[in-house]
Design a protein around this nucleic acid. Structure first.
Length: 388
DNA sequence: GATCCACGGGAATACACGGATG
DNA sequence: CATCCGTGTATTCCCGTGGATC
């Protein structure tokens, strides 16, 4: 964080009486610039990209770690640092290996597969990072974008190291697909898959990110609350308890803490109480998916999820209603048709954003099921832009 | 140079069919 | 067999783009 950002934060915090000084610092979906407690992993990653510091080009490597182990955090921090340390002043994510040349010759490009599912979107993302001029959002064919990418790399002998994060989640673009899309420029690109497992049939280097140990997670939480919460807003033993409960999963720990802080703030409390932390932990469902998976969904889907959660607070027992009924109730409160909402709900269940639970009802015909969120509802409602 | 239009991608919607269940 | 759920897919709509046309 630079001085300007610090000043901006002070300005924003001024007059604010709540305990939350900086929501972004507490948010489970925002990575810190300097990852805590991942020193040895960073060393391994630096070994892997080492050739770039000379005139070489790194071999492919995959980054693998369980949920909440900080794989995204380390890779974004690394790519960001490589860009600012080695990069030119072009403002793009890129690095030059030749002193004096204005253009980067090797780019480090981070692609979030959650937000890139089509070939078109992939080419567009990569191009808009590499080029200064704007890339069309539509009205042009996928082949056109591919040709632009080829002519950007090939004639100038430029190269790109492309991290493809979350390649192994439902509905995201796969590492294999990315390789395929980069086939025309295979000599100029290195793909770095980042996820919970390596791509099938992966034979190159794998860098494993272990789950956080308890004290490491405590350190992470302590660092976050020290700049995100007002002084004295949380007792240290509460931080340790959350770290213990989360069992190495930083996402779950941060989500519980964020939710607790949000609740305490809404109640205008000067500090987090045990009840807030209990509710924060309870808001994280079993087998919880990452909050960012819900926040990267299209706006309409987030709207549907918001309305679904609102039904519950409107007194409708959503856990007892069949999907058909829920879809009708949601459609009534939105611009979408019931058929479309039904489609969305099944689709979201298919992507593990919702869990389908069979209902016990009489009558003939196939048994209906209902749905339950597999994401933290309070944190989602707080962070989703459609809920404003 | 202004206007028009065809095209591509993507989202919303409709629809039909397969399958589970009493 | 009747009924209704769940899913795959065709169709329609919308919007941005960029080339054709005048």
């Amino acid at each position: 964080m630079n001085l300007q950002e610090r000043i901006a934060r002070r300005q924003a915090a001024r007059g604010q009486t709540g305990i939350i000084l900086d929501r972004d610092v507490l948010s489970p979906t925002v990575h810190r610039e300097e990852p805590v407690g991942r020193g040895s992993v960073l060393e391994q990653l630096l070994d892997a990209v080492e050739p770039t510091f000379g005139r070489g080009f790194p071999e492919s490597f995959a980054v693998v770690g369980p949920p909440g182990s900080g794989t995204s955090a380390v890779i974004t921090a690394l790519f960001r640092s490589l860009t600012t340390t080695l990069g030119e002043t072009t403002g793009t994510i890129g690095t030059t290996t030749r002193a004096g040349s204005g253009e980067p010759t090797t780019w480090f490009i981070y692609v979030d597969a959650r937000r890139v599912s089509s070939a078109f979107a992939f080419y567009r993302t990569v191009l808009s990072i590499m080029t200064a001029d704007s890339v069309p959002t539509g009205g042009v064919g996928t082949e056109e974008l591919r040709d632009r990418l080829v002519s950007h790399l090939e004639p100038h002998n430029r190269r790109a190291v492309i991290a493809i994060d979350h390649h192994d989640e439902p509905e995201t673009i796969t590492a294999d697909r990315v390789q395929e899309l980069l086939d025309p420029v295979a000599q100029h690109t290195t793909v770095v898959p980042v996820g919970q497992s390596p791509p099938p049939t992966w034979e190159d280097t794998i860098i494993e990110v272990p789950p956080y140990r308890r004290h490491e997670l405590t350190d992470i939480l302590t660092e976050r609350v020290s700049s995100g919460l007002a002084t004295g807003a949380i007792e240290h033993h509460h931080v340790r308890e959350v770290a213990e409960w989360a069992d190495g999963n930083a996402h779950n720990a941060l989500t519980a803490l964020f939710t607790a802080a949000t609740l305490a703030s809404q109640e205008d409390q000067p500090a987090l109480k045990s009840t807030h932390l209990e509710r924060g932990k309870a808001d994280v469902p079993d087998e919880c998916i990452h909050l960012d998976r819900t926040l990267s969904l299209p706006e309409t889907r987030q709207q549907v999820l918001c309305t679904l959660l609102a039904l519950e607070s409107a007194g409708i027992k959503t856990c007892q209603q069949p999907i058909r009924e829920l879809a009708a109730a949601i459609a009534e409160r939105s611009a979408l048709t019931a058929g479309t909402v039904k489609r969305f709900l099944y689709e979201l269940a298919d992507k593990d954003v919702l869990t389908r639970v069979p209902l016990e009802v009489g009558g003939s015909g196939r048994r209906p099921s209902t749905i339950e969120p597999r994401f933290p509802p309070i944190a989602f409602q707080t962070l989703t832009p459609v809920n404003e």
